[in-house]
Amino acid sequence: MVEIENLKKRFGPFTAVQDVSFEVKKGEVLGFLGPNGAGKSTTMKMITGFLTPTAGRVNVAGFDIETEPQEVKRRIGYLPEGAPAYPDMTPLEFLDFIAQIRGYQGKEKQQRIDKTIEQINLQSVLNQSIETLSKGFKRRVGLAQAILHDPEVLIMDEPTDGLDPNQKHEVRSLIQSMAAEKVIILSTHILEEVDAVCSRAIIIANGRVVADGTPENLEARAPLHNAVTLTLNAEQSQAASIRQQLLSLKDVKKLEKLEESDNNLRYRLVPERRCSIISEVSKLSHAQNWSVAELHVAKGRLDDVFRQITT
């Protein structure tokens, strides 16, 4: 539905986006990750037709952004960074304007507006000018504007930035409720958000795609994925032999001493190729009759993956 091929954007001597290609299908929620200045917003601006790519192609629902920009724009709902809206208008006037520009008139227009207001919970601020609204409500007005025409493609640049935890939760539920019907692309810094709403994540760094996969897939790339932390109640004198036995296990690459005091030995075992070693460790402890106080498998954290591939 959304196809991006070798997208590139240069601003004078500075290249914001080097070479970005990907394809998103209906039902996917794509999270765009990357450090500030990585090219996330620039890529989104090119998909929505705000910026013209220096090179490359953007195709949305079969329409090319360069040759048929209006067709593309009609199918996209876009929440730009910071959710800009006309400050002197009220949310009701603003949505009315958006609905008209989107081609709705009369009864249908009214239905669209009413439905959107309900979906986004804007009832309480409808007749207040947008400049007087709190950040959370401003963001919601921006969202309302983006989903008013029930677009096939929804693109949101940091939709939850600056919202409180309750508001974040609301926005995420909204995204999830629409996910099946649409292509959703959102950018974020908040990695937990990717776990919460995205079915796929793309990490961009220095204008290139450096990782692309499901959140679980990416997490599996963390250096400590499937590492096992083991705490034993054993004498310090046994430590050396225990360490040796653990290290001799299949696929255990490295053993880190976390703590070694009397009656408390803590080790982290890092596996070869991030494969699972928990059952081996547990079998060994059992066989040796060790008194296990804690046995714990680390799941890779997106943060670690992110740091690892973007620095």
């Binding site: 929505t48 705000f50 009609r74 730009p80 400050p87 989107r102 081609g103």
Partner: peptide, 14 residues
Amino acid sequence: KTGTIELLLTLPIS
């Protein structure tokens, strides 16, 4: 200044 140009020019209007 307010960034609404991005909104306006991504609406289906030339």
